[in-house]
């Protein structure tokens, strides 16, 4: 099974190959040393967080484990934050980064962000289950808490007619939502997802279709072409098998539209491994 996946991943990766010869080879080093080091978040539940024993767990650590299993090597996880994750990759502290990083043109110049993207987050609302919002237009005239400076505040009020009540931070906005001062809280769906896992928010849900999706990408260092091809294949493999959707369910969040859509698109694409 393991070798089949590996073969499938490399076969798929071939379609993304740019033709440059693999030189300083992280992939070879990993195979020789028997350890793959992956940078993940440790403060972003449920994508990467610390469990009660201090281990890093979550969706991204599970994906990293899948990569290590496919290669047949040991996995070492390194906790990264937004401000150091690209530097860690560049300095070789980590071989691969799977750390909730939004795929932008500026970042693609610093590190090699792989196609296709593996996840995506956008804008959604968190509201009491009793409020019964079904489309964004239902927010017309409703007081909606937000965080001052968020770019989707304008859209929410201008296009959907909501009355934005903007606070200085997420904790104030959540507090105001709980006090009943607004009918909903508009914010990043990934953040809302993680909050909704907590017991104190069990009366709330995320009822709308996520908008303004921005994709997250797996990254490797520029020039590590063999690793890049292999990881691209892994991402395609995850979309093909629906593994990310499964992990979202495992960690108790609703699959985001992006992972569902990618799974739909790639489903049935699993090529037979060559004997």
């Amino acid at each position: 099974m393991k070798t089949r996946i590996l073969a499938a991943a490399t076969a798929l990766a071939a379609s993304f190959a740019v033709g440059a010869p693999a030189t300083a080879d992280t992939l070879q080093n990993v195979m020789q040393s028997g350890t793959l080091t992956v940078g993940v978040k440790a403060d972003y539940k449920p994508y990467g967080y610390l469990d009660s024993d201090g281990n890093i767990v979550g969706i991204e650590p599970d994906l990293a484990q899948d990569v290590a299993d496919t290669l047949g090597v040991e996995l070492e996880l390194v906790a990264v934050v937004a401000s150091n994750r690209m530097q860690f990759l560049d300095q070789g502290k980590i071989d691969v980064m799977i750390a909730t990083m939004t795929d932008t043109a500026e970042r693609r110049e610093v590190v090699n962000i792989l196609n296709p993207d593996y996840y995506s987050s956008g804008t959604n609302i968190m509201a009491r289950k009793s409020t019964d919002f079904e489309t964004w237009d239902d927010l017309e005239g409703a007081p909606v808490c937000g965080v001052q400076g968020a770019f989707y505040n304008r859209k929410t009020s201008q296009e959907f007619g909501a009355e934005i009540v903007g606070f200085t931070g997420t904790s104030e906005a959540l507090n105001a939502l709980r006090q009943g001062r607004c009918a909903a809280f508009v914010y990043d769906d990934s953040f809302l997802n993680s909050r909704l896992q907590e017991d104190q928010w069990s009366d709330y849900n995320m009822p709308l279709e996520t908008i303004d999706d921005a994709p997250w990408g797996v990254a490797v260092k520029h020039g590590e072409d063999a690793m890049a091809r292999f990881m691209s294949g892994m991402v395609v493999h995850w979309h093909t098998t629906g593994q990310i959707v499964e992990l979202e369910k495992k960690y108790g969040i609703d699959p985001v539209p992006f992972t569902r859509k990618m799974h739909e698109r790639y489903r049935g694409y699993i090529p037979e491994a060559k004997k």
Binding site: Q148, G149, F151, R154, I164, V165, G166, F167, T168, A176
Partner: peptide
């Protein structure tokens, strides 16, 4: 008053310059 989301001038200016 911007701190408790009263939409006075500073609050509005803040949102405009963010956009």
């Amino acid at each position: 008053a911007y701190a408790i989301a009263v939409p006075e001038m500073l609050y509005v200016a803040n949102q405009i310059w963010s956009d």
